[in-house]
Amino acid sequence: MSITIPTGSYVIMNAKTCTYLNVFYSHPVPADIVNSVGNNLGNDIWNVANTESRGVTIQSYGTGGFLSFDQLDRSDTPAGSVVTSNSIYPWSLQQNTAVPYAWKCTGKALAVVDNSAANGAQVIEDDNMNHTSRAWLFIAKEKS
């Protein structure tokens, strides 16, 4: 079942590590995606918008880059790397049996390497969808 997230700004927290999806040092596109202990800056905030195909786009509030998966960049895993892109990249959100929300893209989910809670740990794409560490919570960001 696909899940709809309302259009808005969010911090996106990993359910297992309680760390946040982050653009590494706010680098410009293509930037590596890591986890963060939370700095409350633009590189921890994501704009989410629905697509025509019932997916979502996820765009960095701080850098403007879209959350993406690059199969040609194999610096993170042999399958590719989770990075930012200038092109819109559609994600579909699928229920996770451990926690209400998890991302799924081409049959995979986002995960933090070794379930690490360390600041800057790599975010990768993984095969095991139904695991707490593959679940991401969308926490609405209040306007300041």
Score class of each variant (00 low, 15 high):
74 R>F: 00
74 R>D: 00
75 S>W: 00
75 S>N: 03
77 T>K: 04
78 P>N: 05
79 A>Q: 12
80 G>I: 08
80 G>M: 02
81 S>W: 02
82 V>R: 03
82 V>C: 05
82 V>H: 03
84 T>R: 03
84 T>L: 07
86 N>L: 14
86 N>F: 12
86 N>D: 15
87 S>G: 09
87 S>L: 14
87 S>I: 06
87 S>F: 12
88 I>Q: 15
88 I>P: 10
89 Y>D: 11
90 P>F: 01
91 W>R: 08
91 W>E: 11
91 W>I: 11
92 S>G: 01
93 L>K: 09
95 Q>L: 11
95 Q>F: 11
95 Q>C: 09
96 N>E: 09
97 T>K: 09
98 A>D: 10
100 P>A: 12
101 Y>L: 14
101 Y>C: 13
102 A>K: 10
102 A>E: 04
102 A>P: 00
104 K>Y: 05
106 T>P: 00
107 G>M: 02
107 G>Y: 03
108 K>F: 07
110 L>A: 06
111 A>C: 04
112 V>L: 06
112 V>F: 02
112 V>G: 02
112 V>H: 04
112 V>W: 01
113 V>A: 09
113 V>W: 07
113 V>R: 10
115 N>W: 03
115 N>G: 12
116 S>V: 05
116 S>A: 11
116 S>D: 06
116 S>R: 05
117 A>M: 07
117 A>S: 14
118 A>V: 12
118 A>I: 10
118 A>K: 09
119 N>F: 05
120 G>H: 03
120 G>A: 07
120 G>V: 01
121 A>D: 02
122 Q>C: 07
122 Q>A: 09
123 V>I: 13
123 V>P: 01
124 I>A: 04
124 I>G: 01
124 I>P: 01
125 E>G: 13
125 E>F: 04
125 E>Q: 15
126 D>P: 00
126 D>H: 12
126 D>G: 01
127 D>V: 08
127 D>K: 10
127 D>F: 13
128 N>M: 11
